[in-house]
Design a protein around this nucleic acid. Structure first.
Lengths: 303, 303
DNA sequence: GATCATTACGAGCCGCGTAATCATT
DNA sequence: AATGATTACGCGGCTCGTAATGATC
């Protein structure tokens, strides 16, 4: 009935990641021997082999264990960080994790106000991938995060559960499909997303909803991605749209701004299904100092 | 950087629950001294007091730690159980966890077929609270679970994330509001849920969507609960409806059956917003034997 | 034969229990 | 005084490192 040892879990994931006992030992500051013994103990404890050797890799049970291990270690770390934060002196720093599309005028204004209130502080804005953000908040690496995504109006975004986090909605914007300016649909209204399922789509997982997401939202098959864009900047993505490499879904205000027009990108708002680009603020249980102020301002700006 | 010790976490939650070091020691098979030392080590490790003594209770940091501890321990146990299950011999048992409304004709038929296929086996159907089910599946206490709830059509149910679980939809039924037979709305169609926000509602958290859930679904304030019903049986709830103690939302097929009429309960289907009573099957990564068969049958019956 | 995992073994540390002490009612 | 948490202390076990062995390319 005694619980699995987190330390063993840590070395296990390291061994799997590096596919080597020796490398894992080096990384963790152990000897080969210690790693070998830890894995042996883990396997004895679980009653199954979790690794095959030569070449080193997870067994079936090992792969399953891996699925558990990573979130477990994140939560373990999150628990420590959360309690420590509560105990320690109130920090005057502000580290904000954001997805590329979550950075906007509202945030700029709010951040300005925070800087006026805390003149000495240098806020840090770090752009990160969507899925990484909740874990970073939980472990305290960032104080506050802004995540965004496609959702039905007033529906919360799906949030990987990495610990006790609070979220508040800060914005809901209409979504539109980005098109080359000459495109027959450009500027048209009343568009149904499902009608675009046969078009070529740009898959930019760090910026816009993936094809899989669109399929789920419409219940329609299709939305085959034509080109994959691995980047977090709008310029590049919009340039590809303008060049006719495919369509993509973005918040309408983004496309209505100067950038789209300058690059030769037009757009058409999506009317059906009723979808919004939602932005949510994620924070640990009680933000303090500058983080608390920023949270307050963003929450207020929602009205 | 060393992770918090799960064992310390376990004794911590035990101490908080029992509000006593000695009782916790008895329960866990330690001496008072060991418990005291574990708590001391935990506090040293975290750098904060997590308990106040005499009377024994959590500090602020302790309360926070508690929020992390329980899900952590569940996941730890789930990891062990999951891997062990994969390693061990395929079990021939079938323990099914269900919410009260998830037990229906479809399940009955499917279970019958499973029994024909596995004549020796005695399937166990255990009725449990909604929120407890995912954790029971994760730890392997039940092999399969049926959960249900209000959702937009083809939207998945929110699932507390206790580990890697798979869900498949098995049914979506229209929802209706249960009313006393004489009620002016009984039998009417095209009803909007929001129009009923001022009515008296029965809050039966184990059976039907809570008032809070209705508020979220409609975006309308109101739905103040009149009477709270703490039970898992329909008879009692419907009897209260018939006696005019309040309204409640149920799957239409349930209300259209013989039971409603016999008790003097009528109903009116809800047309707006588009809502369904969704039933989902929850299972660990790979069900086997009878559990796998039942999952297959239920999934197939969906069509 | 070189690389890398495993086993053998001894040393140090950690965590438990016993028992004495301290605190609170 | 009695109940119950803390501290002192010694023992046992666990885990690590060193070093030797074994296996695989």
């Amino acid at each position: 009935m005694t619980a699995v040892d987190p330390q063993q879990l840590r070395t296990f994931v390291a061994v799997v990641r590096l596919a080597s006992f020796s490398d894992a030992a080096r990384e963790l500051g152990y000897t080969q021997s210690a790693v070998s013994q830890q894995i042996a103990a883990l396997e004895a404890d679980l009653g199954t082999a979790v690794l095959v050797r030569r070449p080193v890799g997870p067994t079936g049970a090992g792969r399953r264990l891996l699925e558990h291990a990573t979130p477990l270690l994140v939560r373990l770390e999150a628990a420590r960080a959360d309690v420590a934060r509560l105990a320690g002196a109130p920090s005057a720093r502000l580290v904000l994790g954001v997805t590329p599309l979550a950075v906007g005028a509202t945030l700029g204004r709010a951040l300005g106000e925070v800087r006026r209130e805390y003149p000495g502080m240098e806020p840090v804005v770090r752009v990160l991938a969507q899925d990484a953000l909740p874990a970073r908040v939980a472990t305290g690496e960032v104080d506050l995060a802004l995540i965004d995504g496609l959702a039905a109006p007033s529906d919360p975004l799906p949030l990987p559960d990495v610990g006790p986090l609070r979220t508040v909605a800060v914005a809901e914007q209409p979504v539109a499909v980005a098109l080359p300016v000459g495109h027959p649909l450009a500027g048209r209204g009343g568009l149904a997303l499902a009608d675009l399922s046969a078009a070529r789509w740009l898959d930019a997982p760090d910026l816009t909803p993936t094809a899989a997401r669109l399929r789920a939202a419409t219940g329609v098959d299709g939305f085959r991605p034509a080109t994959r864009y691995q980047g977090t900047d709008l310029h590049g993505l919009l340039a590809l749209v303008a060049a006719g490499h495919g369509l993509t879904l973005l918040p309408e205000p983004v496309l209505a701004g100067a950038l789209g027009a300058a690059l030769g990108v037009g757009y058409a708002p999506i009317a059906v299904p009723r979808l919004v680009h939602r932005t949510e603020l994620v924070h640990g249980s009680l933000p303090e100092g500058p983080a608390a102020l920023l949270a307050l301002l963003l929450e207020r700006s929602r009205a």
